[in-house]
């Protein structure tokens, strides 16, 4: 029997950047003030939770959203930011023509749906005029004490098409039917992120949630050690590019 987890076949695919015309916009912070804050430190841009030791750079997540060309590009960006072992799935939902809600979550039960206890963060974008919008982020679960300021988005800065599309005169919400990371995509996202981490070893020196680390592994060689470690990438074990090769099939 095929594996029941395989609703679709995960494939490695190198996706070229899908870049549409980006609007020039400016990011002005704080016009809306701070949202109600939770415990002390709730507005820290870096948050380290008690239970996971995994940092999320909220500023980077916000920038990822503003720069994303679409939901899959956002998945890639967010998972490159996240330093833990889990894969962050993304749900993008247009509530109406003005409001979009992006939810990051750990799809623990691999059902491709956002469970309340799986949420990590949400980003709400509200278009407030033909040339401006507001964006606000909130953490959930271990990150529930994070509430961002309300950021005003206005002309003057490059935005990815996911954001800039909302300012187009012809804009129609694309995600009234929500986009959600398919469980079948998780493998490809994980592979892409491994490549990214291997190419950026200096960034992944911090401990991850499982105690593994990226770039400074200590105790993996039979004992505890503070010896810095380099990670390098090897091969992938599938052949995707047929090129000009002529294939000969053998059965015995």
């Amino acid at each position: 029997m095929p594996d029941p987890e395989a609703a679709n076949v995960p494939r490695w695919a190198l996706r070229g950047p899908f870049r549409s015309v980006a609007l020039a916009a400016a990011l002005a912070i704080g016009a809306g003030g701070f949202a109600a804050c939770g415990p002390a430190g709730g507005n820290d841009r870096w948050v380290t939770t008690e239970n996971t030791n995994v940092d999320i750079n909220w500023d980077a997540v916000k920038e990822a959203y503003l720069a994303a060309e679409g939901p899959e590009d956002l998945e890639r960006r967010v998972n490159e930011i996240y330093e833990g072992d889990e894969i962050i799935s993304v749900s993008v939902r247009d509530q109406d023509e003005k409001t979009q809600v992006v939810t990051g979550f750990f799809d623990k039960n691999t059902d491709g749906q956002v469970g309340e206890d799986e949420k990590i963060f949400s980003i709400q974008r509200d278009v407030v005029s033909p040339e401006s919008a507001q964006v606000q982020m909130q953490g959930y679960g271990h990150y529930s004490y994070y509430h961002s300021p309300v950021w005003d988005i206005a002309t003057g800065m490059m935005l990815g098409s996911m954001m800039s599309r909302a300012f187009m005169p012809s804009y129609r919400p694309l995600y009234a039917q929500p986009y959600t990371t398919s469980p079948a995509r998780v493998s490809a996202i994980s592979t892409q992120r491994s490549s990214y981490r291997a190419a950026n070893p200096q960034r992944f020196a911090k401990r991850s949630s499982s105690g593994r680390s990226y770039g400074s592994k200590g105790g993996g060689f039979g004992g505890r050690s503070s010896t810095p470690t380099r990670r390098s990438g090897g091969g992938r074990f599938g052949l995707g590019d047929r090129g000009k090769r002529q294939r000969v099939r053998l059965s015995a």
């Binding site: 592994k217 470690t229 380099r230 990670r231 390098s232 990438g233 090897g234 091969g235 992938r236 074990f237």
Partner: peptide, 8 residues
């Protein structure tokens, strides 16, 4: 995908 950790 293969990866390899090697102490500096």
């Amino acid at each position: 995908l293969a990866t390899f950790d090697l102490p500096e």
